[in-house]
């Protein structure tokens, strides 16, 4: 990519801000704490399961630590039209369960949903 000047930076930013609301996102916490708890294997399990079920419109993403270190590996699931859900203790088995139930049929997986206790200051203002 060539170097951006101010105008180019601004237009890139606006382009990037327009998020795709229509895709399902699986976001795996891959900070040191998550990786120590096995998040890399969880990530692989999601990747395989998405492929095995030939799912399209599902994006697997990586992120840092969301602070729930006691319940790593943590995963956030965003399905269009559904509230965002955070799961804790997501082992590869739970990952497959999440794909088959939550992602494919909008059924929540029990016993590992966490509560998201903080707002997004950049999106929700104050």
């Amino acid at each position: 990519m060539s170097k951006l000047n101010r105008e180019q930076f601004r237009s890139l930013r606006e382009k990037l801000k327009a998020v795709n609301e229509q895709q399902t996102e699986i976001i795996v916490g891959l900070g040191s704490c998550g990786i120590a708890a096995g998040a890399a294997r969880t990530f692989d399990a999601f990747q395989k399961e998405i492929k095995a079920k030939s799912l399209t419109g599902v994006v697997l993403r990586r992120t840092g630590c969301m602070g729930l270190c006691a319940s790593e590996p943590t995963v956030e699931i965003k399905v269009p039209g559904m509230a965002d859900i955070i799961y804790g203790w997501v082992t590869p088995e739970v990952a497959r369960d999440i794909v088959q139930k939550h992602v494919m049929r909008q059924i929540l997986v029990s016993n590992c949903i966490q509560d998201k206790t903080f707002k997004d200051i950049l999106k929700e203002g104050e």
């Binding site: 729930l68 006691a70 319940s71 804790g88 059924i107 929540l108 997986v109 029990s110 016993n111 590992c112 949903i113 966490q114 509560d115 206790t117």
Partner: peptide, 10 residues
């Protein structure tokens, strides 16, 4: 409506 067990952080 689905009823699910969830886990409290606090």
């Amino acid at each position: 409506v689905q009823v699910v067990d969830a886990v409290m952080n606090g």
